[in-house]
Design a protein around this nucleic acid. Structure first.
Lengths: 213, 213
DNA sequence: GTCTATATGATGATAGAC
DNA sequence: GTCTATCATCATATAGAC
């Protein structure tokens, strides 16, 4: 057991492991998978390179864990946000809650989720294969969510869930590349995006205005 | 001058240079900036590693050229598509043309544009600095386009051009990660995305339907 | 748990022959 | 224009001391 003194800095295996993961996620995001050496990770985590192998079997093991943790956190964040809605919530509320849930987790764990968005496609094939199931589960969750909303008449009937998901998640994930918390909270961003996506960019409703005169 | 025989494969400096760029763009997209060695590029281009230095001063010079070429092609593609519109085109047509123009160039030069989307953020700072102006010019073009459309009443007045651009370009660029030409042309994709973005995901217009009875 | 030392091979870049 | 040969450095991973 580590010291029970809460003022003392914990330095057990679990804390070191976490520190390695945090450092690695940040470096992978900034420099890509191949661009980060285990020496660099170790140095920023306050260790020697060889010591990493006590905590992780290989560089691939390390990156797979980072990728999966990012997706899982976002999946959970959306599921919880949607779960808090009343059962009869309308389409606009559903969309807003799901978008806010995604953005909150995405931007809170931005090193983990960014590593994901940026390096999944360029990691070795063995890494992609190992991390695929977690990604697919999240995609399937969104497709089911959108199909359900559509079935309840809470979403345009002629929009394919897959197309909507790809457009929507693509737009949201791109915020990782430019979002700065200082310029306005996640809530503001989510409201703005949900509004644009729900109402569209058209200046007026497409049906003729009602005229009585 | 190289041979004038059109049946003979050209192998002058310009052709070799182009072959190196094409190979490098594809590899950078697949494996990231640091993940690709000059030896690997040379091998796939049918050269020895040292020979690359006749055509490019360094790995950084090579990647900067790839990044810039991707952005310039897309910028030009959108400008041409928009330029072909009649002067009084409405907002929906403008948006559709710009989206189609972006997607066409984006997906046609997908190795160059993907290298861009994937590796700009993880390239060395010196690379990002050198490639920044071209990117900013394209962003500024879109902001001006959207502001102009808004001023003509062809776009919702309460949507900030910057927000619209970030959402839109983010969504379009994400198509690089999943689009397969075999499953349906770029035109179909552009129509679908323009439709969702213009009309929104709401099942009905938000204004009450006109009733005369 | 972390260290040092090391095996084994790849890296960007340069020099000079042809 | 492309080659071969090479420099100095860095990579992942392992072994064994403490």
């Amino acid at each position: 057991m580590a010291s029970a003194d809460p003022q003392r800095q914990e330095s057990g295996a679990a804390e070191t492991r976490r520190r390695i993961l945090d450092v690695a996620a940040r470096l992978f995001r900034q420099q890509g998978y191949a661009g980060v050496s285990l020496r660099a990770i170790a140095a920023e985590a306050g260790l020697q390179a060889g010591s990493l192998y006590y905590h992780f079997g290989s560089k691939e093991d390390l990156v797979v864990e980072i990728l999966d943790e990012g997706i899982r956190a976002v999946h959970q964040g959306v599921a919880e946000a949607v779960g808090r809605l009343p059962a009869d919530a309308d389409g606009a509320s559903l969309l807003r809650a799901a978008i806010l849930g995604h953005l909150r987790s995405l931007l809170r764990l931005s090193d983990y989720t960014s590593a994901n968005v940026r390096i999944f496609g360029q990691a070795p094939e063995s890494v992609r294969r190992r991390s695929l199931a977690v990604r697919q589960a999240y995609d399937a969750y969104w497709d089911a969510l959108l199909a359900e909303a559509q079935a309840r008449g809470a979403l345009r009937a002629d929009a394919e869930p897959r197309s909507v998901r790809l457009l929507l998640i693509g737009a949201l994930n791109a915020s990782l590349e430019w979002f700065e918390p200082a310029r306005g909270g996640v809530e503001r961003l989510a409201e703005s995006y949900a509004d644009i996506l729900w109402r569209g960019l058209a200046p007026e409703p497409l049906t003729p205005a009602c005229r009585e005169d």
